[in-house]
């Protein structure tokens, strides 16, 4: 879901560019506060993994594919703010070196995949953890469901941007319906992949997973 140049007018793209730059600055500061030294290479690895995984398009319906966005995956592994930074780095590399995602659309894409996908998706994850039984397996389930919801959430970001500065005369309602319908389906793949990867990491190194500490904190709260 990488917006090319031209879909959204320049003024809107520039506005979102400023918002994305401000958000990224704040995210980097927040990340610096909680990221431990041993998590620095892990966060770099998560970015590299999200890049590789985004290259893999899985078939969704005839004639349409989807690929992992990775916002919730990154946020659960290294925290929501580092997750925002991870997605920003991936989008930057894709746009600058791989001609994927417009250069002027970088801010639009960072807001959708980084802010809505990682930070927004993590808020969904946290809410789900409070609702689900206090078992460690819940982290995997919550990550999968949140990832599935984060995809239409990010697609909503595009619809909003289209409402503000879309350059075509296709009606907003048509774009909204089509984006929701397709991205709810893509979200299923996102949820499955995210749950699988989180399950693999949680089973081998739960101590490295940010989203597990969140769960442990909740459990401690519930017991006291």
């Amino acid at each position: 879901m990488h917006i090319p140049d031209g879909f959204i007018n320049g003024a809107t793209a520039a506005g979102f560019g400023v918002a994305a730059a401000g958000g990224l600055g704040a995210a980097i500061r927040q990340t610096g506060k909680y990221l431990s030294e041993r998590q620095v290479p892990l966060a770099g690895l998560v970015a590299a993994f999200v890049f590789a995984a985004q290259m893999v398009n899985f078939p969704v319906v005839s004639g349409m594919s989807g690929h992992l966005l990775g916002g919730v995956l990154a946020a659960v592994l290294v925290g929501p703010w580092a997750g925002f930074v991870v997605l920003s780095v991936v989008l930057f590399v894709q746009s600058l070196f791989f001609a994927d995602g417009g250069l002027t659309a970088l801010g639009l894409n960072i807001v959708n995949l980084g802010f809505l996908g990682a930070v927004g998706g993590y808020a969904v994850y946290r809410t789900l953890l409070r609702l689900l039984p206090k078992r460690s397996r819940s982290t995997v389930l919550a990550a999968g469901i949140a990832a599935g919801i984060a995809v239409p959430l990010a697609a909503m970001g595009f619809v909003l941007q289209y409402a503000i500065g879309g350059t075509s005369d296709v009606s907003l309602q048509v774009v909204f319906t089509a984006m929701m319908g397709t991205h709810i389906l893509i979200g299923i793949g996102e949820g499955v992949i995210t749950a699988m990867v989180v399950a693999a990491v949680v089973s081998s190194r739960p101590d490295l997973v940010y989203g597990v500490a969140e769960y442990t904190g909740l459990r401690t709260e519930a017991m006291t």
Partner: peptide, 30 residues
């Protein structure tokens, strides 16, 4: 795994093609 990647358009590309605004995309500068 990338060798098995589908070459079909992704969600946004698909919507843009189906609903008729794919032509508003400009070529990437790089």
């Amino acid at each position: 795994v990338t060798q098995f990647s589908s070459s079909d358009p992704d969600g946004l590309e698909y919507v843009a093609e189906q609903e008729g605004f794919a032509d508003t995309a400009e070529e990437h500068d790089l």
